[in-house]
């Protein structure tokens, strides 16, 4: 990670981790991550914006920061991409919470984490979180490449949102299962993450929407283009 990006990540954490308010977000300039330096912004790329938007998902932030970032570079294409990043963040947060909880909670005289049935489920969760994160990160990278080379990142964004939806479907169930009844309470933090994931799974395209879109496009391109298209990036 470049030095500047590391600073951005640090600032983002500092501002968003504990009860963030809009004044502090503004003061830190997080909404201006994409705005050029000469116009008073951070002068960052979409990959930089990914860090901020993903963190909004991770910390279940209730402020319209992703929307504010998008407003500096309006596009009809990018809302699902932003949501994919937030979902990747929320999945990682739910994973971290699940790991922490199962290491602390004891049954049958030992931590839940020591049971292989729990370990194997959380390994699947970690894989899904990693996949959703990769897909979102690669879509943001594709958005940067569009600014350099032209074209659009439609296919990458479709894949990223669909992959995030798939990951959420698999992982939210695991998160709740390993938490037992505690995860089903209003008070415990997990619900803030999983309820967002369930909402986001329908917003800006559910699995049917994007799978159909990708499937129609792939079929129209024909068998002989499938691999050349997939490996063109």
């Amino acid at each position: 990670m470049s030095e500047l990006r590391a600073i951005l990540a640090e600032t983002t954490e500092r501002v968003l981790a504990n009860a963030p308010d809009w004044a502090r977000v503004e003061e830190a300039g997080l909404a201006k991550v994409l705005v050029p330096e000469e116009e008073g912004g951070f002068g960052g790329s979409w990959e930089d914006a990914f860090i901020v938007i993903r963190a909004c998902g991770y910390h279940a932030v209730d402020l319209p920061l992703p929307q504010a970032i998008l407003a500096t570079r309006p596009s009809d294409l990018y809302p699902p991409m932003l949501l994919a990043a937030q979902m990747a963040g929320a999945l990682q947060a739910a994973l971290d919470l699940s790991v922490q909880y199962t290491r602390e909670r004891k049954q049958f005289g030992k931590p839940l984490a020591s049971f292989q049935a729990i370990q194997q489920q959380l390994a699947v969760f970690a894989e899904e979180a990693a996949a959703a994160n990769m897909a979102a990160a690669a879509a943001f990278r594709a958005a940067d490449l569009v600014e350099e080379n032209g074209g659009d990142a439609e296919f990458e964004i479709a894949c990223a949102k669909l992959r995030a939806n798939q990951a959420a479907r698999i992982s939210t169930g695991i998160a709740h299962q390993v938490h037992g009844a505690m995860g089903f309470t209003a008070e415990y933090r997990l619900q803030h993450l999983t309820k967002r994931l369930w909402t986001w799974g329908s917003e800006h395209g559910n699995e049917r929407h994007w799978a159909d879109w990708i499937g129609a496009r792939v079929a129209a391109r024909g068998t002989s283009n499938f691999w050349p298209d997939l490996s063109s990036g």
Binding site: A130, A131, M134, A135, A137, A138, F155, E156, A158, C159, L162, R163, Q166, E207, R208, W210, A211, D212, W213, I214, G215, A216, V218, A219, A220, G222, L230, S231
Partner: peptide, 27 residues
């Protein structure tokens, strides 16, 4: 086999597999 006139069910399968494969390639 499916050609350029896939049914909805076929499109959904193609889309799901493609998104997973694309993501795995990125990884």
């Amino acid at each position: 086999i499916v050609g350029d006139t896939p049914t909805e069910a076929e499109r959904l399968l193609i889309g799901h597999v493609t998104a997973r494969m694309w993501t795995l390639r990125q990884m």
